[in-house]
Amino acid sequence: METSVAFIFLNAFLINNFVLSSFLGLCPFLGVSGKLSTAWNMGLATTFVMIISSLCAFAINEVLMALDLEFLRLISYIAVIASAVQLVEMFVKKFSPSLFRALGIFLPLITTNCAILGLALFQTFREYTFMQTIGFSLGAGAGFTLAIVLMAGLRERLDLSNVPSISRGAALSLMIGGLLSLSFMGFAGLGGGA
């Protein structure tokens, strides 16, 4: 039962990458991955929200379990995530107005990023301890950043290439997503095939 923190990190980061094999957080993955720098910043902002909200979710789950109120779990998680996003938004606006403008509408949309809610739900289902929770959220954030940055790099190149007109836009992005996902399956043997 006791899985090491390092393995949990690696698992969320590469083996079961949050975006490419668990299909979480696809909206920003397809929406914000047009430019490399924006994608990088989006990844960092999402990672930050992930760490804060998963720690809060851990605490809330303890409280709800103690009070026997598990049916309120979903509502409390989503409220926590919305507040964490608000916090990040204020933080970014204060320290980097240019980044704030670059992220635009996608910053508040982190609230409906299923990767963050998914993270909170998965850590609850798998009954992770506090240290495991930290490893899991770091791995998920790093995995999301990696996927979105890879995608942005590929799409920047693709803008210059000559593709058939019907495949411009979403269809091509999805095909690239599929190829990335296929290549990430190669990590499956990592960590002793567990």
């Binding site: 490419l20 094999s21 668990s22 299909f23 019907i166 495949s167 979403a170 269809a171 091509l172 999805l174 095909m175 997503g177 599929g178 190829l179 996902s181 296929l182 399956m185």
Partner: peptide, 14 residues
């Protein structure tokens, strides 16, 4: 497997 999802949706969009 996961890549199949991407490919089939891309096919429908095409």
């Amino acid at each position: 497997l996961p890549p199949g999802g991407f490919f089939v949706l891309a096919f429908w969009l095409l």
